[in-house]
Write a protein that binds this DNA or RNA. Structure first.
Lengths: 219, 219
DNA sequence: GCCGTCTTGTGAAAATCTTCACAAATCAGG
DNA sequence: CCTGATTTGTGAAGATTTTCACAAGACGGC
């Protein structure tokens, strides 16, 4: 079934992912249906928000009853594009790259890291669970051979822009970027940044704010 | 309620972190001042947004000239709470925990992982660069001894809620959570989730959307 | 000093996102 | 069938965030 796709905000999509995760945590034998209120609790939002989010894509619930767990899971997978396998090319075989390669939840959702490249000649040639680490020069060929449309950048900031461009030139349209740098790519390419330092700084700000009761900066 | 710090949105704070990163990438010998337009380019937002964000905390710029790079860096560090050291307790010594422990940018910003715990007895006792991995039972003591207010959860979803509660009971007020589960904690605790699957799914959705719009190319 | 060119800081307007509130639909029980 | 207890889907209202637009300030050249 093809889903009609209106303009949907990024925050809605991110919540859909949380709904899916929450639904997968339910025992659909014991709990075959779920209300927007319950789903909201599980996902950390409000019932109205859940209904609004879902209603953008269709009427999946039944009044008086709620949403059937298994069908809703399928709808969400369909909306998010998870009803297929996504081959992924990983750039960078350092600590972060290694952790991502082993990350079990990617494969579970259809994201399969099918190729790994690294700049370091000492790493090239090693095998990770059957996948041979290759040289960055092989990147364009690899992307094309694997028909990868998704790439992950887990390399230093200095190399990220060039690597991103290489990925895009070879056909990648979506990038998960762990490098602490703003990538400048064509507007048809989607980039999601994972900025670990930023996350810690947001915590730091929140804690500082909380403890500064009664004293602040001069205005 | 804090007297001087206004209510500031999370998105503003996140952008401040990006501004700081962008400023650190500038050579302040060659470029002693920066305009809101330039900073916006570097951080991937608009000039008006930059000015609005900064103006919530003070008047840091000079009309006709822009912002002085070094002083603005200091203002941002001050706002974000980076003018101090933040001891951090890491829960989970698996792949992700290991990558985070080695992550160089944390220490650079004052976030120092001073203790590591793991549930696995086989890992307890090992040393990571001078830090001994300890049992989860030691967690409360460790948090208190280190005076850690920040914790990182890099453990399976099943263990995350209990570990989070242990952290909070021992005095932690901010948590960076890599476990794919919604934590339920007191409202005085700040939790930032890093949801890698969600990030990939957002890419998947975007790509699926783009291809389903037919042959038209994005501008 | 005066002029022209920049650039900030900021109210107001526009856009976006979230919550509210309620009609319509569903079910269980008698 | 009818009643009462639920719960969805959704316009409207409310809240928040972003963009606009411009007065006021700053600097260099002369």
């Amino acid at each position: 079934m093809s889903t009609d796709l209106p303009a949907v905000s990024d925050s809605t999509i991110r919540r859909l992912s949380l709904y899916l995760r929450a639904l997968e945590g339910l025992d659909d034998q014991a709990e075959p249906t779920v209300s927007s209120r319950r789903l909201a609790e599980l996902a950390g939002t409000s019932a109205a928000q859940v209904r609004k989010d879902l209603s953008r894509f269709g009427s999946f619930g039944k009044r008086g009853l709620g949403y059937s767990v298994a069908p809703l899971q399928n709808h969400l997978r369909d909306i998010l594009g998870l009803q297929r396998r996504w081959p992924v090319v990983l750039v960078g075989a350092g600590r972060i790259g290694s952790a991502l390669f082993e990350y079990p939840y990617f494969r579970e959702r259809g994201f399969e890291i099918v190729a790994v490249v690294d700049r370091d000649p000492a790493k090239v040639g090693r095998r990770w669970n059957g996948v041979k680490i290759q040289s960055v020069e092989a990147l364009p060929t690899l992307v094309r051979e694997c028909r990868a449309e998704l790439g992950i950048l887990a390399i230093p900031a200095t190399d990220a822009q060039a690597a991103a461009e290489a990925l895009v030139d070879a056909g990648v349209r979506g990038i998960l970027n762990f490098a602490p740098v703003q990538l400048h790519l064509g507007s048809h390419v989607v980039v999601n940044d994972v900025n670990l330092t930023l996350e810690m700084e947001a915590l730091s700000f929140a804690l500082r704010t909380a403890s500064e009761l009664g004293s602040g900066e001069g205005g």
